[in-house]
Nucleic acid binder design. Structure first.
Lengths: 213, 213
DNA sequence: GACACCATACCAACTGGTCGGTATGTTGAT
DNA sequence: ATCAACATACCGACCAGTTGGTATGGTGTC
């Protein structure tokens, strides 16, 4: 107790880190158990903080959920800005690069790649409008980030009538979310990879690069 | 299975109906709130039955969940046996008929068309292996029911290499589940209809009936 | 540069209420 | 009379949220 080591005491978490630790703990815990099945105590234990700290930073469990949804959006941002495929010249190559990147994430334990937003909105959309809205905003942000490349690909290569950029962006998100659900069901990511492979083939066909029967 | 001879008492729910009422209540309540957020009392209230009756018929909440998953599978069976499109001669027409039928269901309140299985497995797959397995069996039954028509369509029209019937059946299921998640997120089925429309176009292209850019 | 002052960050213990599940009583059909 | 099919009353565990308090770091004053 008397020992007062330098800047980072090893015994417990640094002061000021509780809020971030709680959000990170919410991400991992809710992804594993769902929102309703995750108690505030669970999150506190995972974050290594007490309940007092929790309610110092967040007015309610719901408020944490909203903050965690916003943090998740920020966490996903580098996927569109820092990855190598985002530097490709051809917009369709950028889109396919994104799909391939999402595909490459679908390995290992299911908890490691499933979407916090999709998991949470499933059992909170009917009980908490603030959470639902936060999740809607996060999904919309993802689609908005994906849409410009799709738009450019449509401009460059054309697309069948009725296919628009926002529309296709939402479909990409839909296939991913569906893959997560099935991966949870079978406890195996292979089924999600299959589905993303179908999505990739669809996009290739849409833009005239694919092969038909 | 068959109704007892003689009239049922008029005043309150017929004796012997509690089990079916509880399963039906589980379907509606879990679809709206998720599994973890649904209490045994909620289900009992929705079924118009007391807790004593609940635990007379089911050993636990988990046991009801498993029974409800099996009942859901049975409930979906007529979709493959009794609908008009199942009588079509062309297997691809039967498949498209099924897709169109699923599309036509995507109207009105979200609670009305989302999948009990997909909702429940989301927040129970990590905490209850029996529930996960029951949901896996239900999804597998759906895919098994869909696969023969796809197989026949592949035989009749051919398909790109790597596309198999079980594979594509799972993709159909995946797109549906993903559409449900996004419909919950936006509280609007339109987004799910869009996604199923993309799925339909993909299938048309796969089998050479589609148009590319 | 030392110290009073104070807002923030955090903690342990607790509360009223709800949870899944149980123990036991009552009813109705055979 | 018997037993399945319910209902009533209750239990310990756990839930989200509250309370009263302590530790920490920044700031103004001299």
């Amino acid at each position: 107790m008397a020992a007062r080591p330098g800047p980072a005491p090893r015994g417990r978490a640094a002061r000021g880190s509780a809020r971030a630790a709680l959000i990170a703990a919410a991400h991992t815990t809710v992804r594993r158990q769902g929102y309703a099945a995750t108690s505030v105590d669970d999150i506190c234990a995972a974050a290594g903080v007490t309940k007092g700290a929790f309610f110092h930073h967040f007015a309610s469990k719901e408020a944490l959920a909203v903050a965690a949804a916003e943090a998740w959006t920020e966490r996903a941002r580098p996927m569109f800005e820092m990855l190598p495929h985002t530097k490709l010249k051809d917009p369709l190559d950028r889109l396919l690069g994104h799909i391939d990147f999402r595909f490459s994430m679908l390995h290992g334990p299911v908890d490691g790649f499933i979407c916090f937003i999709g998991t949470m909105v499933q059992d909170a959309y009917a009980t908490s409008e603030p959470i639902r809205l936060a999740c809607e905003a996060s999904i919309a942000a993802y689609c908005d980030a994906l849409a410009p490349d799709i738009e450019a690909a449509i401009d460059a290569y054309g697309a069948p009538p009725g296919v628009t950029a926002p529309d296709l962006a939402r479909h990409v998100q839909s296939v991913l979310q569906g893959g997560f659900v099935l991966a949870k069901t079978t406890n195996d990511p292979a089924i999600a990879r299959e589905s993303v492979a179908h999505l990739r083939r669809y996009i290739l066909m849409l833009f005239g690069r694919g092969e038909t029967a």
